[in-house]
């Protein structure tokens, strides 16, 4: 099925949040999971790069490791929009994914044991 279904003029207000992303909804890398850990790289912003206030807010929150879910909750923009902002920042090497979350597989035995221990201690 084609994207045209979504991108006709009738879409109207549906895309308003994506003005933040200048209309971009496509991602270079869409492997980001809600529990992916993000951290700012601390590298200087390239001179040619223009960051929007929303980009800067994302960067600020990522000064310390934070999951994509918590970041989206804090930024208070729809997950799809934050996904694009994160993608932009990763493209500029300003943000990195710290922990490639297990994609597909259940977490390993060590994580499960830690989890069990943590739950019992609650």
């Amino acid at each position: 099925m084609s994207d045209d279904r979504w991108l006709d003029e009738d879409a109207g207000p549906i895309f308003r949040p994506y003005t933040v992303t200048r209309g971009r909804t496509r991602l270079r890398d869409d492997s980001l999971n809600l529990i992916s850990l993000l951290e700012a790289t601390g590298l200087p912003v390239p001179r040619r790069t223009r960051l929007d206030p929303e980009h800067r807010r994302v960067l600020a929150f990522c000064a310390e490791p934070i999951t994509f879910a918590d970041l989206s909750s804090e930024i208070d923009l729809p997950v799809g929009v934050v996904r694009v902002l994160v993608d932009d920042l990763r493209e500029e090497n300003l943000l990195r994914v710290l922990q490639a979350t297990p994609t597909g597989d259940v977490p390993d035995e060590l994580v499960l044991r830690k989890l069990l221990h943590g739950l019992r201690a609650l």
Binding site: L34, I35, E64, P65, P107
Partner: peptide
């Protein structure tokens, strides 16, 4: 302002000693 609410971040104690923080769901 990003530091005003550290509760959403991975606890610093978790990262000491190079331990990799982990999120599970």
């Amino acid at each position: 302002y990003a530091h005003s609410d550290t509760a959403v971040h991975v606890p610093a104690t978790a990262r000491r000693g190079g331990g990799q923080p982990t999120a599970a769901k």
